[in-house]
Design a protein around this nucleic acid. Structure first.
Lengths: 210, 210
DNA sequence: TCATGTGAAGACATTCACAGCA
DNA sequence: TGCTGTGAATGTCTTCACATGA
């Protein structure tokens, strides 16, 4: 399997989203410059990114919307689907759960973990909440490969992610402010919301002085 | 003002966080390779990034923790602070509000907007919730320069961000799945959570086959 | 000796520009 | 003509490697 850059992957996900929208409008064909316009980038960038997926359009009719969508999905998704777990069912965890319902059928959030007795044992949108203590056993049982960390405090994030990795998790979406130290072959995407806010504030400041 | 890359800014925010932690442990001096170790990158990268802020360490004692922290803050923060607003007080919006309290005194989330009559007029952690209809007037009144979009549906995101920009907002942290089209001098950071999840799932898949 | 600061090199990502095709 | 696919050029980011200083 060829390793494509993080940037290209993120854009392919965006293109697929755009293609779904076009499909929803009943549009059958599209062109690199149209996708680029909706994705806020350039047609050359779109064509370059699409080289990775191996679907080839025609100069006359551009790309067939459904076929291209299918090709991108074959490239991005795992054939038999992947199962994800949320660690921490606070406001953020439940917000993500709301979004994830019916989003991508190939990625299902099947289990959640919390320490709150009120939540343990209950079902949230088809996702069962377990006691955090059971995490190692449940991750194996449910064949979880992706985890989303939404714990309020970063203190336990390192230990928990080691437990996750030990039991089969290969990708972590980390909303915690903790900087995880894991083996290089585990993919970690850090999404600290306060870092994001500070970044936006910095550029808002810079752009104001013009 | 010199334009530094997005990547460097994000790392400077991380370094500051690390320095705060070191400071909390009573550590007075540190070195580029120590920061690099905690930030999960290289010492050369750290030194290169620090060139932007203009604080210079000494080969003998490295960097003075508090001084470096201060220099980074002078570089990143706006002298008189910045005010932010949250648009959409659902689970996600309130989660962000919880995090933002007492985080960075230079960035305060002062107002929120929603359409739910239950929330309008109430105070959430010192942040007042207004009717979404009042957004233009309140943004001017409160001198908002940064906005966080956490609407459940992306449909209104474009119109709302145009209203925000018209009244002084220069940076938008967009948790919506909408791809905003705004003037180039407005900074938009897209944080679609489902895009993030798909990205992590892709790399989890790739890394598994090894 | 060991760490900093930084030119220069290298790696990576984007854009240009054009052949080839309908 | 107007598009795609892609070498080549350009631009950006990261790493190397070394002069300098305590």
């Amino acid at each position: 399997m060829i390793m494509t850059s993080k940037h290209t992957i993120e854009r392919l996900i965006l293109y697929r989203k755009i293609l779904k929208t076009l499909h929803g409008y009943g549009i059958l064909n599209t062109f690199s410059h149209k996708i680029a316009n909706l994705a806020e980038n350039t047609s050359a960038q779109v064509r370059r990114d699409l080289m990775a997926v191996g679907y080839t359009g025609s100069p006359a009719h551009g790309y067939e919307v459904t076929q291209l969508e299918k090709s991108i999905s074959e490239y991005l998704d795992s054939e038999f689907g992947q199962k994800a777990a949320i660690v921490g069912l606070g406001k953020l965890g439940r917000a993500i759960l709301d979004y994830s319902r019916h989003y991508n059928p190939k990625i299902s959030v099947v289990s959640a973990f919390d320490i709150d007795e009120q939540k343990i044992g209950k079902d949230f949108n088809g996702c069962k909440c377990y006691n955090l203590k059971e995490i190692e056993h449940v991750v194996i049982q449910d064949d979880i490969t992706v985890a989303i960390l939404t714990l309020p405090s970063p203190d336990d994030a390192q230990i928990i992610s080691e437990q996750l990795v030990k039991n089969g998790v290969r990708g972590i979406l980390n909303y915690t402010s903790a900087k995880l130290k894991l083996e290089p072959k585990i993919y970690v995407e850090n999404r600290d919301m306060m870092v994001a806010l500070e970044k936006v504030a910095y550029f808002a400041k810079i752009f104001k002085n013009e």
